[in-house]
Amino acid sequence: MTQVDLTGKTAIITGANSGIGYGAAKDFVRNGARVIMAVRNEDKGKVARERILQENPQAAIDVMRIDLADLASIRSFADAIKGQLDSLDLLINNAGVMMPPHSKTKDGFELQFGSNHLGHFALTGQLLPLLKNTPGSRVVTVSSLAHKGSEILFDNLDGSKGYKKFQFYGQSKLANLMFARELDKRLKQHGLETISLACHPGISSTNLFKFGKKDAPNFMKSLMDKLLQPADMGALPTIYAATHPSLKGGEYIGPDGKGRRKGYPALDTPHPVANDEDVINKLWEISEKLTGVVFDF
């Protein structure tokens, strides 16, 4: 992959303490960026930061707390960032929860839709003034192969009428993809230079793959390592979407291998379910209503 010089650029990565977010953070600082690791658990964030500094002692890397399952936490994070920065080159909407038992965010949203989609929607809307202020800025939102064949359950967004964890995970990842592409469309309609892209990691062995509350047993880990790509490879589509000079916005990037499960980053095609304009517009409206965040293009 082409190495892009990121000297002088600032990136915010949600969920940067592990997996894909950690892989992206390592790459960005190696190429000269300042990285803000936006994490729920600051202790884990600091451990991850120390690991990166051991490899790259000159790295400019900070840890800040954000809980994407809490709109007040998102607002205080965004306010703190706007107090520190007047520009922002990269926002990587990466953090995610995957297939937990039915539970709610602080604001009463179903946890996966609330954290994975609404949290990132609210964060992006509140950081938009900084992104607009920065030539060549990008927003990258991490979706998943799980968006395929999913739907937005507008009459059951909170899961109160029944909850299947994989179905609700797929819904949140479809929402991520719809949001990323619609954001790009609206940015272009308003003549803004900021672009928005979506990506997915294929199937990578990040710590999202937990068996209940316990780590997978060792034999499962070795099996997963054979079948799945390592987190550093899973991070490549995110890095490509964030940095590749050929991209114009609105693209969807994933691995190039069989079934798009493994491999090196390339353009991918979203499932047709992601192209329904009525659903996309309804999702945007309801996201503004639920979060109270209206995008000021």
Results as ranks from 00 to 15, higher is better:
181 R>C: 06
163 Y>I: 11
199 C>Y: 01
161 K>A: 14
220 M>W: 06
181 R>N: 10
207 N>F: 04
208 L>G: 10
210 K>L: 10
206 T>R: 09
185 K>T: 12
198 A>F: 02
220 M>Q: 08
203 I>P: 03
171 Q>S: 02
174 L>A: 00
177 L>Q: 08
206 T>F: 01
179 F>N: 01
216 A>G: 02
162 G>P: 13
174 L>W: 01
191 G>H: 13
176 N>Y: 04
189 Q>R: 09
217 P>G: 00
197 L>A: 07
211 F>E: 13
185 K>F: 03
205 S>Y: 15
215 D>G: 13
198 A>M: 08
171 Q>R: 05
172 S>W: 03
185 K>I: 10
181 R>K: 15
218 N>S: 09
205 S>R: 13
178 M>L: 10
170 G>R: 08
193 E>D: 15
193 E>H: 01
186 R>I: 02
194 T>G: 09
191 G>E: 11
221 K>N: 15
167 Q>K: 13
169 Y>G: 03
204 S>P: 11
196 S>R: 08
177 L>S: 05
211 F>S: 13
171 Q>C: 03
171 Q>E: 12
204 S>K: 07
194 T>E: 06
216 A>V: 04
205 S>Q: 13
214 K>R: 14
198 A>C: 09
191 G>L: 10
188 K>W: 05
220 M>V: 15
168 F>R: 03
179 F>D: 01
174 L>R: 01
207 N>V: 07
162 G>S: 11
200 H>E: 12
197 L>Q: 07
168 F>Y: 15
200 H>N: 14
206 T>S: 08
176 N>V: 00
210 K>A: 03
201 P>N: 10
171 Q>T: 02
185 K>M: 05
189 Q>N: 14
187 L>I: 07
170 G>Y: 03
198 A>D: 08
182 E>Y: 00
184 D>G: 11
202 G>T: 12
210 K>D: 01
172 S>T: 06
184 D>F: 09
165 K>T: 13
182 E>A: 01
171 Q>I: 04
164 K>C: 04
195 I>S: 14
203 I>G: 06
204 S>I: 07
164 K>W: 04
176 N>Q: 14
199 C>K: 02
184 D>E: 12
219 F>K: 04
220 M>Y: 06
172 S>M: 02
168 F>T: 01
177 L>F: 07
214 K>F: 12
169 Y>H: 02
177 L>I: 07
173 K>N: 05
177 L>P: 00
184 D>Q: 11
163 Y>G: 07
199 C>T: 08
178 M>C: 00
189 Q>A: 15
198 A>N: 06
174 L>M: 00
185 K>H: 13
166 F>E: 03
167 Q>S: 10
212 G>Q: 15
205 S>L: 12
217 P>F: 05
210 K>T: 06
212 G>L: 09
184 D>P: 02
219 F>E: 09
174 L>V: 03
186 R>T: 03
206 T>A: 00
187 L>H: 05
192 L>F: 14
186 R>V: 08
210 K>R: 14
182 E>L: 00
165 K>G: 10
197 L>W: 08
191 G>W: 14
195 I>G: 06
222 S>G: 09
221 K>A: 12
164 K>L: 05
190 H>Y: 08
200 H>F: 12
205 S>F: 11
188 K>G: 06
180 A>M: 05
166 F>Y: 14
171 Q>Y: 05
201 P>M: 10
214 K>S: 10
211 F>N: 14
221 K>F: 05
